[in-house]
Structures are given as structure tokens and as C-alpha cells.
Amino acid sequence: MSESPGVAVSAEQAPPAEAIPRPDDPAAPADQKPLAAQRVLPIRRPGRWIATAVVLVVVAQIIHGLATNPFYQWDRFGYWFLRPTILDGLLITLEVTLYSAVLGLVGGILLALARLSRSPVLRAVSWVYIWLFRSVPLIVVLLFLYNFSALYATLSLGIPFGPAFFTFDESRLATDMVVAVIGLSLNEAAYAAEVVRGGILSVDQGQHEAASALGLPKRYQFAKIVFPQALRSITPNYVNQLIGLIKGTSLVFYVSLLDLFGSVQSMGSTYPGDIVPLLLVATVWYLILTSVVSVVQFYVERYYARGATRTLPPTPLQKLRAGVTDLRARIRKEAAV
């Protein structure tokens, strides 16, 4: 979209010659304000208006298509949207996401600390873990775990080749939910570790030095000085991770857990004619989940911005209020002119 501001300005200045006289104009009325006291007229941007119009037309067309194309079967969408099977699936999705997000973050923090530790063994173990789980596709991890109970019927904790302290009957322990959560958490921890490590590294070295120089205990240094500052850069990256995780849960269908996507799939095979509205149901629910996470992200980021910026960014409500006030003031001004 090419604009020529020069042309716009001269076009602006030329026509209202009566309204805005030049100061050297001898015919200027005596009561006219001097040039310096006059309001500067903003530059006109015709290109921007044209672009806006084009985009609006395209958007309207898409909405029209969505609403009127019988292919989408919106009545069937309405029928399925709050069906108990779908809501049960949604609940599974939420549960799996919640457990994996918490376990993944805890695991990620531990892995990040291990990678930043002075012990070469911890560093190496953490590195290998991250390397492994970032390399293997999540679906492979899940299927591996799913078949794990067949490979190892019992799982025991003890000394290798020596006595066992605890023994679990794995076929009873490993429900589909447990398999799904373990698989997602293992995968999530590897990515979260890098997010957390990046956040910790982003904290200025001077902060570590100041905390050491004050003799603050090591644990306090991490929990109260370094980590809260690291969270500022961890939050947006981890939310990204979290959104990936919400959608990643759709893979648990392959370990026979009926999550949101799983219920949609199984209903779709029972009612093949409804597959499109069913996919739309899943889409809208995933959209809602992501939106909720984004809203939470905004407020969490705002909380951790304390002290980092001189003034906190306004909340959407504050922005709206300011916008309305500004608009009113402008209308009043225009009316006065």
C-alpha cells in the first residue's frame, strides 16, 4: 500500500484557504488566531483506509461463508457442543493438561538447576535427558509407555542386581491416565527445563553477586532473588509451552484415553455425517482453553513486571476506559471547533 504524505499535506493545505489564512495574508481577519496557536491537523492516510476496507470485506466474506455454508451444519454443532460425552472428554483433557503442566514444570526446574549446577554428573544427566526427550516424538514416548506394562510386569525400586525395597504391580498401577500423564510430563519437562534455564540465565550477574555479597543463604538467593526475576521471561515462554501441551494432549487418544479429541473421534466414527461439526466443537473448545490461558498469562506477566518497568502496563479494562475518555474529549473538541 503506497502512500504519498507530501501530496496529502498539500491537498490538506490548499482548499480551506478561507479558514486558515497565511500570516502574511493582508486580507486575514484581525480576530484570527496566530499560526503558532493553531491546532496542527493530522496527516491524512488514504492508503490505510483502503487497506482497512479490503480487510473488512474479506473478513465479512469469511464470516458469511462460515455462517451460511451448509457444510458446517451449525445445528449439529449446537447439538454436540455441550453433550456429556464431549464434556467428559474435555474434563480428561483438562486433567491431563493440569497434571502434566505441574509435573513438567517441577521436573523442568529440577533439570534446569541440574544443568546449571557445578556437578559435572548432574549437568551431563540433565543434558542427556533433555537431548533424549526433545529428540523422540511425543507419540512414540506415549506408545512406548503404553506397551511398557507388557514388557515389565512388575516395577521395583531397589539396588540393581540386589534386593528390591518396593515392588509395584504395574498392570494395576499404569492406568491409561497415568501412562498419558507420565508420557506428557517426561516430554514437557525437557522443554520446560530449557525455558527455565533461559529465564535464570537472563537474570543479571550483578544480582547473583549482590545476593552472595549480602550473605543470603543459597536457597533464599534462588527462591527470593533470582527465580522471581527469571519468571518474567519464563512466563511467556512457558505459556507457549502450555498451549502446545493443551493441544498435545490430543495424542493421548492413541493410548486409548478418551480426551476431547478422542471423544470427537469416536463420536465421528459412530456418526460419520457429523464429523465436520464435531471437529468444529473440538476447535472451539481448544480456542476457549487457549484464550483462558492467555488471559491468565497477561495478569501473571503484569504481576512479575513489578519493579521491572516504571509503570505497569494497563489492563484491558483500564485501556478501554482510557480509550472512551479520550474519544469523548476528542468529540467535544471537534464539536467546539
Binding site: 543479571d204 550483578g206 549482590a210 555479597a213 550473605g215 526475576q229 513489578r306 521491572a308
Partner: peptide, 19 residues
């Protein structure tokens, strides 16, 4: 760390805790 708490240190770049 306990010993350091008996020695005050003032840095060129202040290094206050911003949060």
C-alpha cells in the same frame, strides 16, 4: 555466606533487587 554477612559491599552498579 555467614562470613560475608559481616562485610558490607557496595557495587558500582548498585545491584539493587529490582523486584
Amino acid at each position: 555466606l555467614t562470613q560475608r554477612s559481616r562485610i558490607g559491599f557496595v557495587f558500582q552498579n548498585f545491584n539493587l533487587f529490582p523486584h
